[in-house]
Design a protein around this nucleic acid. Sequence first.
DNA 1: CATCTATGTAAGCTTATGATTACATAGTTC
DNA 2: GAACTATGTAATCATAAGCTTACATAGATG
Lengths: 115, 115
Amino acid sequence: MDVALRAVADPTRRAILRLVRENEIPAGDIARQFPSMSRPAVSQHLRVLSDAGLVDVRPDGNRRLYRLRPEGLNDMAAFLDEIWTDNLTRLKAVAEREEWPQRARDANQVPHQKA
Amino acid sequence: MDVALRAVADPTRRAILRLVRENEIPAGDIARQFPSMSRPAVSQHLRVLSDAGLVDVRPDGNRRLYRLRPEGLNDMAAFLDEIWTDNLTRLKAVAEREEWPQRARDANQVPHQKA
DNA sequence: CATCTATGTAAGCTTATGATTACATAGTTC
DNA sequence: GAACTATGTAATCATAAGCTTACATAGATG
């Protein structure tokens, strides 16, 4: 989980993921989308994404085509689920949507010092 | 978006989020859950989470009670949606997630393109 | 072949991050 | 109000992250 979440934490890499979301794109084209940084920098980002399982690579003659590997984000989705599975928190996240009935607060797993 | 995603990229902070997911917990109790690191380290993590809008803090006499602020993860959910808006990719991701719930991805033979 | 194109890797630099210990501050309690 | 408790902050350090330039390599092309 760690590797994917850390990879996604970088804005450049998120931008890359958006780029390759629908189409295979050669590394050079991707790099060209980031004129503010060097091509090797982008190449290294691609490496990180690849290591994190967030993109697939495929050689195509001279070039290397990248594309999104959507399953790579499963850990992130799982984390969201884990956090939001709780009804209270989920309701809170969409609090303003509707009125919800009072609910008993249940026992905690982490001991409070004293009440 | 950046600040929240970067905050969540750290495993200790994710663990903290799980702790405060359902209950308010005083900082000291949280720190006690991480015997392998110093209390100030945890305090700084709490600061990061707070700055990222992922937790709320409330003074309670001597102590400070932390609890999850679920809306703080909305950006992360939005990013997931943005990437997964394509139904096929989403289905694909979910399919693999259910098939390999333990998330053991093999780096060599990538098992995509099922069915 | 000679060389041009696309791309990855290595080395090195700078800044960010996460940790530690020492200290400061606010509240509680006797 | 003196001492104790809970917690945050400051200073500092080691390591990680991200960038750059220089170099290496694989495939395309004349």
